[in-house]
Nucleic acid binder design. Sequence first.
DNA 1: TGCATTAATTGACATTTGTCACACGTATTC
DNA 2: GAATACGTGTGACAAATGTCAATTAATGCA
Lengths: 190, 190
Amino acid sequence: MEDNILQQKLELLKKKNEKAYLEFTSSFEVGSSKKGELLIPIDKICTKLYILKSGVAKQFRYKEDGSEYISWFNFEGDMMTSHISFVSQKPSIEGIKIIEDSEYTFVPRDVCYELSEKYHAVETFFREILEMYSQAAEERLYFLQALSAKQKYDYILKNMPHLLQRVPQKELSSFLGITRETLSRIRKHS
Amino acid sequence: MEDNILQQKLELLKKKNEKAYLEFTSSFEVGSSKKGELLIPIDKICTKLYILKSGVAKQFRYKEDGSEYISWFNFEGDMMTSHISFVSQKPSIEGIKIIEDSEYTFVPRDVCYELSEKYHAVETFFREILEMYSQAAEERLYFLQALSAKQKYDYILKNMPHLLQRVPQKELSSFLGITRETLSRIRKHS
DNA sequence: TGCATTAATTGACATTTGTCACACGTATTC
DNA sequence: GAATACGTGTGACAAATGTCAATTAATGCA
């Protein structure tokens, strides 16, 4: 989504330092996964950074009661990884699962950090990605804490309508932090 | 808190590039504020990055119904700013208010970005700060969405006990996303 | 195509948390 | 030091959302 802001950042990198850009992008590999596949399992150390070319994926954990908590959905153009594990190289507490057949490219984590160290421009690229990422997290925090179930649904309707078309309600409700039943009832009265 | 991880990062910067370190730290200015003072008002563009030396501050917004949403508390050693406004230079949707007399240093935003561009090591410094920041945001997201009122309180008790000593219950409850009354009742039965 | 599995809907009811009103004690201030 | 504002505690009640169970709709697979 977001009309390929990631692509724009990559273009910027290319303009700034073509050598760095080429070295970075030439280490991209391609892959694909079917619906239901676990791209990053919980408890494993995450060593790759993914860029989704097509399809949909979800980032999730399990709560204490065994139910699922969905922290984010990823669509075409999105960069994704199990962020905390990627940075810290500890076992991941979040997993990534494909929920619609997907194609993607990926880079090994080491390449990201090596090139960040080698090229200032690559470091800048990642700093800017992180800036966007934390903005999104901050907005989501407010969204989750400050809005009622109905307000959350209206927010999605207005700001992320593609979710409604491409994500099952079961998953959407978990993303909103409400039950399927509540979501179903809200939809009925909208 | 976090036993001055920020200080560690600054030391690292110094070791990597002393010139950059000196240029960065020499543009720090000092300031102080009394309890109740608004360090960063809502709707203003945020142009400074603060490091709290002593005291406590809160980052907050107002919800649609006028009640307060507290996104974070800052203590000695914490870096703080209105993140989204700082990055985007748009009017801030969050404010920062002093809730215990504070001393701090601050750097103009422009210096941060100029030095990030000028020195690779400074860029790395900020990238790492952002990595920590997004990890914290991610954990807070899970905390808010996945836990009940009582679980949230127990989590604070266990992981952020200093909050209980230095933050009024009114503010703490807002941080937890529950009402004062609910917090009061939970405390009674603990 | 048809069977089997999964997702969504719906109703009755339970639970959690919020709201409102008021009492009480503690700071703050003039 | 009295007066005022502010933070906290508590009770009665209301509202929002969750839980459980059953039914229907949709989807995927043989």
